[in-house]
Design a protein around this nucleic acid. Sequence first.
DNA 1: CGTATAAATGTATTTTTATTACATGTCTGT
DNA 2: ACAGACATGTAATAAAAATACATTTATACG
Lengths: 273, 273
Amino acid sequence: MTPTQTLLSNLAKPAQAFSKAEQKVADAILANPELTTRLSIARLAQSAAVSEPTVNRFCKRLGATGFPDFKLKLALSLASGARFINSAVAEDDTAPTFTPKIFNASIHALEKTRDSIDTQLIHRVIDEVVQSKRIYFFGQGNSGPVAQDAEFKFFRFNTPVSAHQDPLMQRMLAAAAKPGDLFVIISYTGRTIGLVETARLARDSLATVISITAPASPLARASDLAITLDVGEDTDEYLPMTSRLAQLTLLDVIATGVTLRQGQGHLTAPRAH
Amino acid sequence: MTPTQTLLSNLAKPAQAFSKAEQKVADAILANPELTTRLSIARLAQSAAVSEPTVNRFCKRLGATGFPDFKLKLALSLASGARFINSAVAEDDTAPTFTPKIFNASIHALEKTRDSIDTQLIHRVIDEVVQSKRIYFFGQGNSGPVAQDAEFKFFRFNTPVSAHQDPLMQRMLAAAAKPGDLFVIISYTGRTIGLVETARLARDSLATVISITAPASPLARASDLAITLDVGEDTDEYLPMTSRLAQLTLLDVIATGVTLRQGQGHLTAPRAH
DNA sequence: CGTATAAATGTATTTTTATTACATGTCTGT
DNA sequence: ACAGACATGTAATAAAAATACATTTATACG
């Protein structure tokens, strides 16, 4: 998905073994990356106080075929907000520094999701939603609020809808499911045993199960349709989960799709609170 | 914010009064925009079957200073998915077209929020959170799930925390508040009378009230500290609310700030479901 | 319908920009 | 201190883009 946009982050990495002159080039670029994308090799060389071939070699070392290609990749990496991505929140961060980092992490998660969504699958999910007689949104833990948010969103349609966070209640509802019921199960990991069993129960009762979960997870396999979100590893110690946002937006997409399908419009319902 | 990235959309617009040769150029670019960003003016001219100066003039007509600048802007507009930005969801949209639109709207909301956040205020909010003995998150309707999400997030800290969506319960808790209690009230409009009264009640009981709400709203005025989010007008008929995402991310920011302040780390708590 | 005029497009040239080849310098290890 | 490798710069070459200008094509008007 996201291509070779590690450029800027590579640049900033202190681990990079740059030679003296190359470090000067890196510094000059970092001083004003935006500007650099519009500079000629001669001007950049001048502002870094090195020769033109040094700049050229620098570009090639970073994986570009030449200076113009480098500028292109730099511009791309700037556009995608990559300057903060990968930049973990550190112990010594303060509000002005970690705030944009967290927002950028969220933005990045949405961009990644946007670029990896299978729209054909979305189409089929919308089909199922439109055809269903009853919709249940299930989520546990962090995904609970997401399910509840979905309930609010889908409340506008004619189909009865409810959200449930309690595992026991989920299980009971799944066991009592009827054909025409649609269960939308939201789980980041897709490995919560209770939810997987609930999905199986619901399918055994001939209801339809759609999950929003991790690729190749047990839950995904146990579902009729699985929208898989690979938001990223959330490896970073201080960065909070961004998966919720992707899940929420995905549900926005589905709700919008249903609205359009029904041709009756009006997601512009009252918007209190 | 988002700069002059209307380039691609301008290109595709049939209304554009291009001359014959220029239309050929536009077609050639549209046929493969990605590739075009790496082409020389000579090659593009060749593939469009026009002369090089025609391409150059074409670029200038579209607001670029020349061909390289044009390529740069084109690349930027591709990277940011700008082909969909500004484009409202329309009746005849299908999954492949409205999906990126909705994601872009969400991304845009986060970008806007990121760029308008008062980090000094965030700093003070973090102070309050750290000093509090007890935290309540209140939200009604669409903000209910946000409050609940916050509860999950703040659960990791030592301070007792709970989220409440029921207006009556909110009111009761506010009336029974004690100094050292912190009420975080989330409301998009900031005009829900119940919530405003709840805020007053809590302050009368000498508790601290922080709101995440609309600028210059009654709730903002009734709070000790108000983080105001002006996400935008949500004017578009089919685009769903994006404010929740901004609220959620903002709470992420605060939680991260608290974690850093406590110097004990570990937002990397178990991440099930 | 033809001519004048303006607009559009192309050709040839110049200028700018990027790359390459090669020479010089600088560091490393013995 | 010196051989060798590596880094950097100088100068020449090649490529790309922009410009000036010529030619063609369209348009308006008598």
